[in-house]
């Protein structure tokens, strides 16, 4: 799915030059579930941004299904994010003024579906994360775990090839954390998604078949499937 070669990313933070990624090379196969661990500021999130086409590398290539994301135009990247890549964030990042169902529907907006089929697909996605009956609730009326389920439904409703999750359990208690990890694991098994899970939680990471560690911008393989 992903072929990453000699990926570097440097950016300026005031006068300081931060080298977030220093020549990372990595291959992630189709349908793999990979956990990326590492200390804060080690480059985890930067790697995820490169994988999701949210930012451009300083040098190196990130090939998604054989196409280099770095060579794509903004519009092409937007289209890739709309069709191929699903995101799950640490803070859920739901739109607070929209209901759970409407939040899931936002991911289908770029696809320009008819309203009915959009709503039907969003409902099915909510169902698949066990929240079919909470569609008309606002995020503020849902628990953290429920909000993250809505966010996962939003990421999956467009049937992406890849799911990128940035600390998806970072803001959840242990019990809820396990529920979410169960859910992600289940989806992986059922749908054959490629999933990259950034986490600093070893408990979460140990449940994945492949673990990577990134620190000071350098990648290390911890275990391979």
């Amino acid at each position: 799915m992903y072929q990453i070669d000699d990926l570097t990313k440097t950016y300026r933070q005031g006068k300081r030059v931060v080298r977030a990624l220093r020549g990372v090379s990595l291959t992630i196969g189709d349908g793999e579930l990979v956990a990326v661990q590492g200390p804060t500021g080690g480059g985890k999130s930067t790697l995820l941004q490169m994988l999701g086409g949210l930012d451009r590398p300083t040098s190196g290539t990130v090939k998604l299904d054989g196409t280099d994301l770095a060579g794509m135009s903004d519009a092409q990247l937007t289209a890739a994010r709309a069709e191929t890549i699903g995101f799950v964030f640490q803070n859920f990042n739901l739109i607070p003024t929209l209901t759970a169902l409407e939040n899931v529907e936002t991911a289908l907006v770029p696809a320009r579906l008819a309203r009915q089929s959009r709503t039907a697909r969003a409902l099915a996605a909510l169902d698949s994360v066990g929240l079919g009956d909470r569609g008309d609730h606002l995020p503020g009326e849902l628990s953290g775990g429920q909000q993250q389920r809505v966010a996962i439904a939003r990421a999956l409703v467009k049937n992406p090839k890849v799911l990128l999750a940035d600390e998806p359990t970072g803001n959840l208690d242990e019990e809820t954390r396990d529920e979410i990890v169960d859910l992600i694991e289940g989806l992986w098994k059922e749908q054959g998604l490629t999933i990259v899970l950034v986490t600093h939680d070893s408990v979460v990471a140990r449940r994945t078949p492949r673990r990577l560690r990134i620190a000071k911008g350098a990648m290390k393989e911890l275990s391979a499937a």
């Binding site: 903004d74 519009a75 699903g86 995101f87 990042n93 936002t106 907006v109 770029p110 939003r154 467009k158």
Partner: peptide
């Protein structure tokens, strides 16, 4: 964050 999220999930500029 909200608008960034919309961009991240594929909303065009």
């Amino acid at each position: 964050r909200e608008l960034g999220t919309l961009k991240a999930i594929g909303w065009s500029k």
